[in-house]
Design a protein around this nucleic acid. Structure first.
Length: 433
RNA sequence: UCCCCGGUAGCUCAAUCGGCAGAGCGGCGGGCUGUUAACCCGUAGGUUGCAGGUUCGAGUCCUGCCCGGGGAGCCA
């Protein structure tokens, strides 16, 4: 009977078949230990020379890692096993015998450098570390969707091919749409604003593309963003939603992917600290923190990586920074009536220097003001006509935010670089495999 | 686009002042009945990124190029 590794504890004493790959092999005289993985987990199979025929024992002795196999044996509870169970192997069927796997089986002291691993990303994802990271990614994604549906949001995705910029024209990937120029989406937000006027609470979750010439551990040219948009929401409503969302997501990962976090060596106490309330500070207060830390920072300016790190390290949980100067933020953000040089926006900075994981705002809902902002930002009015319609026909106050999936996963897993948090990262001048 | 670091065995790295190119891991062969990225013995494995230059002699010094990494600018 075919059983997955994660289900083995329910089959102790039974004879089962595992289908998977050899992750490692250790030999000890008349015993061979086969570490098998099948996608759901890892388990050690024990091949005892005294209990199998000579051919099976020889096959086990010579089996090279990353060979694909079907292994039959009896499940045995064993306190020595990390997962609590082992398999007493009776039969090994080799589907394909690998003989020269490109990624070496190595110890901690000589892991290949990251350039070589990235060139083998299609195989690298089989390693324990990458396996654990991507399982956390899946859980983060699911937790976000579960939470938003509980809150009454509908997932209605935005198009990828568009005709206009959301975040600035220099970072658009241009493509050809039947002879007309088109761009890969930088954000689904404008479309979500339209959908919010149809369904009230909506979100999209998909890839976004930014042709930024950035070579840092926080940047990808293709990354996944989750963007809720909420009709009649104020900045304060958004702050509450973000706070509840992040607390929920972290708790879910701690509950369902604790083993993976431990495999990654994550300090779980840092995640357990992620509880309400999150600190809420203004841009001005953030600047004070920078000045107290001795940084030479002159507002109005946006925070760079160094600034974000210093601000976030002042707190043990995500910090929400609001009311940025209007000139450093996007055209669609609504000015604060009490301070017209400030916008009613929020950036959420993850702890431990992981940088901005959420950015959001109330949206400008007045037709004339919005037209003026588009002009001020040097953007063409024509492609935005449908967007302006939203302010012509029943405009309402509303707002939303975008959460960057890869940065969030990097923070939760403790992985330094976002390139490990997506299956196939796209970075500056890197698109293979 | 700019700055910094690097490229030596399949992988990670040594190689003193410019003087015989080495080790660990991995592979292969052997040993070991409880290993947890095992251990022990043996063994094979090299166009020192590429091209040129200096020198009696270059992995080492010089020039150019290629590739990789880190950072900045930029950027939700």
């Amino acid at each position: 009977m075919w059983v997955y590794v994660e289900d083995l504890p329910r089959h102790v004493g039974e004879k089962v078949e595992l289908r998977g790959w050899l992750a490692n092999r250790r030999k000890s005289g008349k015993l061979v230990f086969l570490i098998l993985r099948d996608g759901t987990g890892f388990v050690q199979g024990v091949v005892n020379r005294a209990e199998v025929d000579e051919e099976t024992f020889e096959r086990a002795r010579r089996l090279y890692y990353e060979s694909s196999v079907r292994v039959t044996g009896k499940v045995r509870a064993d306190s020595r096993a990390p997962g609590g169970v082992e398999l007493d192997v009776e039969k090994i069927e080799v589907i394909q015998a690998t003989t020269d796997y490109p990624i070496p089986k190595v110890r901690e002291e000589n892991i290949p450098d990251v350039g070589k691993l990235l060139a083998q990303r299609h195989l690298w994802i089989r390693s324990r570390r990458q396996w654990a990271i991507l399982r956390v990614r899946d859980e983060v994604q699911r937790a976000i969707e579960d939470f938003l549906h509980q809150e009454g949001f509908l997932r209605l995705d935005a198009p990828i091919l568009t005709t206009m910029a959301v975040e600035g024209t220099t970072t658009l990937f241009r493509t050809d749409y039947f002879g007309e120029p088109a761009y890969l989406s930088q954000s689904g937000q404008l479309y979500m604003e339209a959908l919010a006027c149809s369904h009230g609470k909506v979100y999209c979750f998909g890839p976004t593309f930014r042709a930024e010439k950035s070579k840092t551990r926080r940047h990808l040219t293709e990354f996944w963003m989750m963007e809720p948009e909420w009709a009649f929401a104020t900045l304060e409503d958004l702050l509450d939603l973000i706070e509840n969302l992040l607390v929920y997501v972290v708790a879910r990962v701690l509950e369902r992917r604790r083993r993976e976090l431990e495999m990654l060596g994550r300090d779980l106490t840092r995640l357990e600290a992620v509880q309400k309330p999150f600190p809420r500070i203004t841009y001005d207060e953030a600047v004070e923190i920078l000045h107290k830390a001795g940084l030479a920072f002159t507002p109005p300016d946006d925070f760079g990586g160094d600034e974000e790190t210093v601000i976030s390290q002042a707190f043990d949980r995500p910090v929400m920074v609001t009311h940025y100067p209007a000139e450093v933020k996007a055209f669609y953000m609504k000015r604060d009536p009490e301070r017209p040089d400030r916008v009613r926006c929020v950036d959420v900075l993850a702890p431990e220097g992981y940088g901005e994981i959420v950015g959001g705002s109330e949206r400008e809902d007045d037709y004339e003001t919005l037209v003026q902002r588009i002009r001020e930002h040097g953007l063409p009015l024509e492609p935005y006509q449908w967007y302006l319609d939203l302010r012509r026909y029943g405009t309402v106050p509303h707002g939303g935010f975008g959460l960057g999936l890869e940065r969030t996963v990097a923070w939760i897993t403790g992985v330094r670089h976002v390139r490990e948090t997506i299956p196939f990262p796209r970075m500056l001048e890197k698109i293979y495999p």
